[in-house]
Design a protein around this nucleic acid. Structure first.
Length: 723
DNA sequence: GACCTGCTGCGGACTG
């Protein structure tokens, strides 16, 4: 019995709580964590008690009388730390264990106290670990050199991302200052690739996955309302109102502008028909206090219905109470994201989740359906972890030099080589990058010591140094001294224009460029705000599923009549291509001297294909949503074109470097890549932004089936592989 | 038409 294995204070906690039984993931975690010294990944659906699953055995096992922080909990969000703080403190109530929040908005006095007397449990963000290593390496050592466990919450949010590589490097650096090695426990509801999650601990062999596959029952319904303007169809908004007015709802419309449009329009309808006033918007551009108010409202009210129109800010972790309906407007970019969003409803025991999926366009409907079917099949897209993150190496090398107040180049390289986040980076590359940093005055060689250079000081001492992701500059929006939120400066932002923000309509009175403030007053009608920024990338498997649906006979009872009609229409459009093998064949529409080439593949491959067509100077129209390319060439020349593109792939390094010289903004995805030697800039672009291997496979293995002939085009098999 | 995440140290004003 897992319960019997726990220490007495922890058993007392469970008795006091009157829990009838432990959840499956908790039972498994207690048995395994208490009986072995492995690292663990705990994978189980949202609201299944993962935090307790990790902490019940850890609190039973660890001797908190030792000095130094014993357990470090790492979270991707401040809001999640604040939420978990109460739960962890509650878990510790029968133990004499101090719990401390450590992030940019946490109480400084508490942090100071902890430095004077390092003990207990600390809840922290990756950026705060970075800041501590750089600014106060002695405190970092005093606090974190006797760690027994590191718990990483929402670990999937780090996998395959730059922030994840950063965290991996920080874990390696913490490992280096610890007397004995610590164990890592990662928590997540959505993991597609367990081997990636295991590698994250730096010790794949010694990391075990505890998995509870059970899911909650759910009813799903698709609704189709075609939109031919920028705005959502009025009928759709009305339908959305009737579907949600008497529920506690989260609506995910994929963009901040849309989130505002929906919140404002629903509120208008509600005011007209005398419904409830609790319509909110929640995303990164809404003021923090407004967001906290909304979260608090959702969490603490039981009687009132509400409706929050939001982006991925409400996708992770934070428990916002009882939501009984989740609405997704147009397809999610990933299945992982769909799972997280679905998991936001029916968090109370015995509750059924309800999912409503709107589509405003046929391709969006098809993608939405594909994501839903893949989700039911248990597929989650795998992550691509960068093997050679030269830009993050550069950042961490600077950080390490600053942490040590200087060291020799050999010492630095030895340290970086022992860091498992950079184990695939070649010695020569490390030398080249450090030499470039010296040339650019970011590092300076004084006798045998490397120290931070004049230019480097500015970077290392700026607030921006602690994170590895970029953010857009924005203006504060203020009404009568009260902050509403922040928006980027787009052409739309000028005096007398109306905007939507925080679920209200505003007129811009004054834009102050000096203090970066926008003064607004309430208004009655306005446009949704424009936001900059890139979207997500769609996995190739989703597109393959879309193709499969087009050629299947299956009918989907979840679809409404309009959705079924639209699907039938799409199927009819594609029936002209005699496709048989969906793994190997793709449609090509020949029409009026043009061809439309449907790749049905992931965003990265499409993006790479577009890059190659640009290098070839071939005019084309690339549409990501339908995964297609319109080319004004004769259909007979297609094979020749593919051969040409494949030749370009052989020289892709050359083309990437040339493209970078013409257009430096290609590297916008990387915050710390700007100082890399050109060759390595090309490398990170190739590895993290494009997928030329995928293009090669597409061009060389696929059969392209056109509508007017039965002739099959096969591009040459003999194409050389660039790698 | 397309998301999100985090952040130090110091000086000065103010409060108890």
């Amino acid at each position: 019995m897992p319960y019997q294995l726990l220490s007495e204070p922890i058993r007392r906690y469970i008795r006091d709580k009157r829990w009838e039984s432990l959840r499956p993931i908790q039972g498994a975690a207690i048995q395994h964590i208490l009986s072995s010294d492995s690292n663990f990944i705990l994978a189980s659906r949202t609201a299944s008690g993962k935090t307790e699953a990790a902490f019940l055995p850890i609190l039973s096992k660890v001797d908190f009388r030792e000095t130094g922080v014993q357990v470090l909990y790492i979270s991707p969000l401040i809001a999640l730390i604040n939420d978990q703080f109460y739960r962890v403190e509650e878990l510790c109530k029968n133990l004499d264990v101090k719990v401390t929040k450590w992030h940019g908005e946490a109480n400084r006095t508490e942090k100071k106290k902890l430095v004077q007397k390092p003990e207990g449990i600390v809840l922290i963000t990756p950026e705060s670990i970075e800041a501590m290593l750089v600014n106060a390496p002695y405190s970092a050592k005093a606090l974190f050199s006797n760690l027994k466990y590191i718990v990483i919450d929402e670990i999937h949010s780090f996998l395959g991302t730059d922030r994840g590589i950063h965290l991996k490097s920080l874990l390696a650096r913490l490992g280096a200052v610890n007397k004995t090695s610590f164990r890592i426990v990662g928590l997540s509801a959505t993991i597609g690739d367990y081997s990636e999650a295991k590698k994250f601990t730096g010790d794949e062999v010694n990391t075990k996955v505890l998995l509870d596959r059970s899911s909650r029952e759910m009813t799903t319904c698709f609704r189709y309302f075609e939109s031919d303007t920028q705005e959502l169809p009025l009928e759709m908004v009305k339908d959305l109102y009737t579907q949600t007015w008497n529920h506690k709802v989260l609506i995910f419309p994929n963009s901040r502008g849309r989130a505002e449009e929906i919140a404002v329009k629903l509120l208008k309808i509600s005011q007209r028909v005398g419904g409830h006033p609790n319509y909110f918007s929640h995303h990164s551009s809404v003021d923090k206090e407004v967001r906290e108010y909304v979260e608090h409202f959702a969490k603490h009210n039981r009687r009132h219905n509400f409706c929050i129109s939001c982006t991925s800010t409400l996708e992770l972790g934070i428990d916002i109470g009882s939501v009984d309906k989740v609405v997704q407007v147009d397809a999610t970019h990933s299945i992982a994201s769909l799972i997280q969003r679905v998991g936001r409803s029916g968090r109370r025991e015995g509750e059924k989740s309800q999912l409503l999926l709107y589509a405003t366009d046929k391709w969006s409907l098809l993608q939405s359906l594909a994501c839903w079917l893949l989700y039911k099949e248990g597929y989650i897209e795998p992550f691509r972890t960068a093997e050679k993150p030269y830009d993050l190496f550069l950042h961490q090398a600077l950080s390490t030099v600053k942490e040590r107040s200087g060291c020799t180049k050999d010492e630095l390289i030895a340290t970086m080589k022992s860091n498992y986040a950079f184990s695939e980076i070649e010695d020569q590359a490390m030398q080249d990058i450090l030499d470039e940093l010296i040339r650019q005055d970011w590092l300076e060689q004084v006798h045998r010591e490397l120290i931070i250079g004049v230019e480097g000081e500015r970077m290392v001492n700026s607030r921006e140094f602690y994170s590895v992701f970029k953010t857009e500059p924005s203006f504060k929006v203020v009404n009568a001294g009260k902050p509403i939120g922040e928006i980027p400066l787009t052409p739309q932002v000028m005096e007398d224009e109306n905007i939507l923000l925080a679920a209200r309509i505003w007129k811009i009175r004054f834009v102050d460029f000096k203090t970066k403030k926008i003064e607004v007053v309430p208004a009655v009608d306005g446009k949704k705000p424009l936001f900059l920024g890139g979207g997500g990338t769609v996995d190739a498997k989703v597109r393959e599923k879309m193709l499969e649906i087009l050629y299947a006979d299956a009918q989907y009872p979840e679809l409404d009549e309009e959705g079924l009609d639209k699907l039938a229409e799409l199927r009819k459009d594609f029936a002209i291509f005699p496709l048989r093998d969906f793994a190997k064949e793709r449609p090509v529409l020949v029409k009026d001297g043009q061809i439309i080439f449907y790749t049905f593949t992931g965003t990265r491959i499409n993006r790479s294909l577009a890059f190659l067509l640009n290098r070839l100077d071939l005019k084309h129209v690339y549409d990501e949503q339908s995964s297609s390319f319109i080319l004004s060439i004769n259909h007979d020349l297609l094979q020749e074109l593919f051969e040409q593109l494949s030749l370009f792939i052989e020289d892709v390094d050359f083309h990437l470097q040339h493209a970078l010289e013409d257009n430096a903004s290609l590297l916008d995805f990387s915050k710390w890549g700007l100082m890399l030697p050109l060759q390595y800039k090309g490398n990170i672009l190739e590895e993290r932004f494009y997928d030329f291997k995928g293009v090669n496979i597409l061009l060389s293995n696929m059969l392209f089936v056109s509508n007017n002939t039965v002739s099959l085009l096969r591009s040459a098999d003999k194409l050389a592989n660039p790698h």
